[in-house]
């Protein structure tokens, strides 16, 4: 073990770590139940959450189509809605499968972090594309709503509801996008710093 960087600050850390290790030495930590649970854990390509999302979206597709059909929206609008939902679903599946297949946790930390950043950038790009698509869809929704409805008050009410929902969704999407960008930027800066020295 190298010692030339041992200074009081690092020595302090070492002393405190020794206390931590002596506490942990008195603990069993791992038990038989835990090991059995770990070994039984099923390895799948998709996470449980993604599977639920896929099932939910698949059920939502015909439901959305039926709702807009019942309300008298045009065929073009219905097809556009299903197309957007369908493409979003396929993209989500693709991103999840790619991320899980490309994850190699036994790679060195830097290489792994760089790979994960690359896949996250693809996700961010998708989010950046979807927010304006959503805004366009809301515009189409309002247009189609006024075109098909004989009742002006109903059309206004439905349009307001759609616009408010869409704007909330767009804001949440934009906030999420900014947060992910900020986190990715911090990680990238640290990776560059480590590689530079």
């Amino acid at each position: 073990m190298e010692t030339e960087n041992d200074t009081s600050e690092l020595n302090d850390l070492r002393r405190m770590n020794d206390l931590l290790q002596s506490k942990l030495d008195k603990q069993a930590i791992i038990n038989k139940d835990l090991i059995e649970r770990i070994i039984r854990e099923k390895s799948g390509t998709l996470s449980k959450e993604t599977t639920i999302l896929i099932v939910f979206t698949i059920l939502t597709l015909p439901f959305c189509y039926w709702v807009f059909y019942s309300l008298g929206f045009s065929l073009g609008f219905r097809i556009a809605t299903i197309a957007i939902l369908g493409v979003s679903l396929l993209m989500s599946i693709y991103q999840q499968v790619t991320l899980i297949r490309k994850r190699k946790l036994d790679e060195d930390i830097l290489l792994y972090a760089e790979k994960m950043q690359k896949y996250r950038r693809q996700n961010h790009l998708w989010l950046a594309i979807m927010v304006p698509v959503l805004l366009l869809w809301i515009g189409y929704f309002v247009y189609d709503n006024f075109s098909r409805s004989g009742d002006l008050h109903q059309a206004i009410a439905l349009s307001i509801a759609g616009i408010v929902g869409g704007i909330i969704g767009a804001i949440l999407g934009a906030v999420q996008f900014k947060r992910q960008q900020r986190m990715a930027k911090e990680i990238i800066e640290q990776i560059e710093l480590l590689k530079k020295e």
Binding site: E2, E4, T7, L10, D108, I109, L110, E197
Partner: peptide, 16 residues
Amino acid sequence: IGISAKNVSVRLVRIK
């Protein structure tokens, strides 16, 4: 980590 031993040394100085 995926860096050289020299980088580790430099990094530890910065951390200190």
